[in-house]
Design a protein around this nucleic acid. Sequence first.
DNA 1: TCCATTTAAAGTGTCGACACTTTTATGCGA
DNA 2: TCGCATAAAAGTGTCGACACTTTAAATGGA
Lengths: 235, 235
Amino acid sequence: MEAQADVQPDEASTIADRVFGQLRQAIVEGNIPPGSKISEPEMAARYGISRGPLREAMRRLESANLVERRPNLGARVITLSSEQLLEIYMIREALEGLAARLAAERMSAAAIADLKALLEQHRGEIAREYWQAYFQKEGDMDFHYRIVQGSGNQRLIGILCDDLYHLARMYRCKFGMVSNRARDALKEHELIVDAIAERDGELAELMMRRHIRASRRNVERRLATETTTQHRTDP
Amino acid sequence: MEAQADVQPDEASTIADRVFGQLRQAIVEGNIPPGSKISEPEMAARYGISRGPLREAMRRLESANLVERRPNLGARVITLSSEQLLEIYMIREALEGLAARLAAERMSAAAIADLKALLEQHRGEIAREYWQAYFQKEGDMDFHYRIVQGSGNQRLIGILCDDLYHLARMYRCKFGMVSNRARDALKEHELIVDAIAERDGELAELMMRRHIRASRRNVERRLATETTTQHRTDP
DNA sequence: TCCATTTAAAGTGTCGACACTTTTATGCGA
DNA sequence: TCGCATAAAAGTGTCGACACTTTAAATGGA
């Protein structure tokens, strides 16, 4: 009744794992605001568990870079600085470029067909316009997710899907990024998929890097105007 | 007396952190052999602590990808497959290329001077030849470590220095990689530092990627001959 | 002898309790 | 009233104990 239902279909056999997933979702979606302190007894009581499993979940959150812990001081949800957001974009550019190249070399024909179908669906959603851009953005993550999976590099998959993507989602929830770039992004996605379909790894990498760079510059532009409008309180 | 002295100078204030460091070192150096099961009661007894802190250390080792844990089955030290080694090389090529570019843009003049001094020292060590190539290899890590630090990208530093470098060191301890490539590597290092000193980010990235690629191919070659000699038991 | 079933042992997951640290509240003096 | 010292409260780190699962051994039957 109180939102503790397992929204995640993956029934984690251990309590610590389940709470880790729940906490991660709560943090990423902003339900636990950034910078706020997480009290172990309070959280344990909220989830109806003991402090043991909760501490393990906290350790995993720390390793996922979602909370910062200092000895004897407790844990706080990380604060979202624009510098860190740009740091993540740079890493994504390098790693997803690699992922696109590997995907072009190793992705199965069926997976490529699925990817094309996904893009087709996005094209329809954008055409219908009034549907929230939010879904498009989640679809954007879905697109990137699949390409990374297609790379077949397990460690690459881990870094991007287990860590960076959650952080990216967190930033998006924070700043409420509605995509004014949906059409451009879709076009770039299509170029990437075309390169993958033609097994042109070099081109796929180039296109993916350019795509993420464009996305980063869009964010930079937005952050810049945001700060100037903040400073424009003294005209 | 039994090597449990704190070789790490950083006195971790919490037991879990200290044991994490000790276990990581033991795993990386091969003292706890790959694939071996880690029993919680046994390890807790060996380090003279309770299972609570040990479990937290294990969680951190899991997040660092040094052990694999499955619910109710326990933890095992990861096994070292050559595929995973090549995966890491690919990621390092992408990320350290980025690091070199950023370092060229942002590294302080003093840090660059230190880097040059380090290379000078390596040159001397190689000239003296008979000194174990081992030191050169550790020096290689030191070189890469400094450039990554020089990138100033905190998350990049975290991924490489906290995770990948330990794994790379683990592989080296496992296969006993003595560098037959010391001279070539040193020359490549010098090219990278020159590019950084001239603030040529593009060139620094290119050189770093080429350097890591060369190192990867060297490993690939060695792994290939290793397997063929293994198969050559039926002439 | 071999295989299946049952039983005991070991091991992991979880919990509640205690020690020590940090923070907050309180009281005293200037 | 303000500042400092002291004390109480809250919180984190650690420990030992218990429940459940997995694994191993032991027992019985074909």
